[in-house]
Amino acid sequence: MARIKPQALLQQSKRKKGPSRISATTVLFYLLILTLVGFFLFASYRHWSNRSRLQAESHVSISEGDISSADSKRSDLPGYAVLNTSKGSIIIELHKETAPEVVDEFIDLCQKGHFKGMLFHLVIKHYVIQAGDNHGAGATEDWNLRGKQHAISSMKHEAFMLGTSKGKHNHKGFDLFITTAPIPDLNEKLIVFGQVIKGEDVVQEIEEVDTDEHYKPKISIGILDVTLKQKV
């Protein structure tokens, strides 16, 4: 067997025990991988963060848009109604902010011609004039007369206010009341949804007509038609 020289054994031992060297190319490769992973994580964070912010802003924008749309729809409704009566015109400013549902119903009925030809069938001086369906007028007359005893005791319910009776209305049950004096007793009976701004003299002229013992006018006085207006 051939003998290995000591110098060759020493060199062979150094090659086995010496630390292995990592090339510069390998180091750069791993650095590039770490850089790409870090960039990907940062980009993902930015993407989801911006998406969450945009969704939140979009939700707020939609909510504000709904409110704006509702406000715009409300402002598009007619703000005034002109009651053309056989005694003259009465201009009403509608309270569409404080009684929106009643104003909506009133406008709808005006557009359908519900009030055309409607008679004022109850006239109580210094109290109220009423137009509408006079079926069952006795009950209405009763509470009107009871309220009249305490009519001028408060300013809660002003004169020349337009209202309708509370409760659900049937097709013909939307009656109209115009007060001719401050009447607090009607606060629990009527929903006020408008105010006379012109034509108080016409209301007073209707109020002064002769009536029978049941407060029914002896001559026919009615609403010829109702005109809706945005401005007057």
Rank of each mutant, 00 (worst) to 15 (best):
M1K: 05
M1P: 07
R3P: 03
K5Q: 13
Q7Y: 09
A8Q: 15
L9R: 12
L10E: 15
Q11P: 00
Q11V: 15
Q11T: 15
Q12D: 14
R21H: 11
I22P: 06
S23C: 07
T25M: 05
T26Y: 03
L28R: 11
F29S: 10
F29A: 09
F29I: 09
F29E: 13
L31N: 09
L31Q: 12
L32M: 08
L34D: 14
L36H: 06
G38Y: 08
G38W: 00
L41F: 12
L41Y: 12
A43W: 11
S44I: 11
S49L: 08
N50T: 06
R51M: 11
S52H: 11
S52Y: 09
R53G: 03
R53N: 11
Q55T: 10
Q55S: 13
A56C: 04
A56V: 06
E57M: 09
S58G: 01
H59A: 15
V60C: 07
V60G: 05
I62K: 09
I62S: 05
S68H: 10
S68P: 00
S69N: 11
D71K: 07
K73W: 11
S75N: 07
D76W: 07
G79I: 01
G79F: 05
Y80K: 07
A81N: 05
L83N: 05
L83F: 15
N84T: 13
K87V: 00
I90G: 02
L94M: 13
H95E: 15
K96P: 02
A99N: 06
P100M: 06
P100R: 06
F106M: 03
Q111W: 03
K112D: 13
F115D: 03
F120I: 03
V123N: 02
I124R: 07
K125H: 12
K125D: 03
A131Y: 02
N134K: 03
N134T: 04
H135T: 15
G136F: 04
T140N: 04
T140G: 14
E141P: 00
E141L: 15
W143P: 00
N144W: 07
L145F: 08
R146F: 07
G147I: 13
K148M: 08
H150T: 15
H150L: 11
I152V: 09
S153L: 10
S154M: 06
S154E: 13
S154C: 14
E158Q: 11
A159D: 04
F160C: 00
F160Q: 03
L162Y: 01
T164W: 00
S165K: 06
K168R: 12
K168V: 12
H169A: 15
H171C: 00
H171K: 05
K172D: 14
G173R: 04
F174L: 14
T179S: 11
T179L: 08
P184E: 10
P184L: 05
L186Y: 04
E188V: 11
K189A: 11
L190I: 07
L190Y: 02
I191P: 01
I191A: 05
I191C: 07
F193A: 01
V196F: 05
V196P: 01
K198D: 04
K198N: 14
V202T: 10
V202R: 02
I206Y: 02
E207K: 00
E207F: 04
E208R: 13
E208I: 01
H214S: 09
Y215W: 09
K216C: 08
P217Y: 03
K218C: 12
S220P: 04
S220Q: 13
I221F: 04
I223D: 02
L224Q: 14
V226D: 00
V226E: 03
L228F: 08
L228M: 09
K229S: 13
V232S: 08
V232N: 10
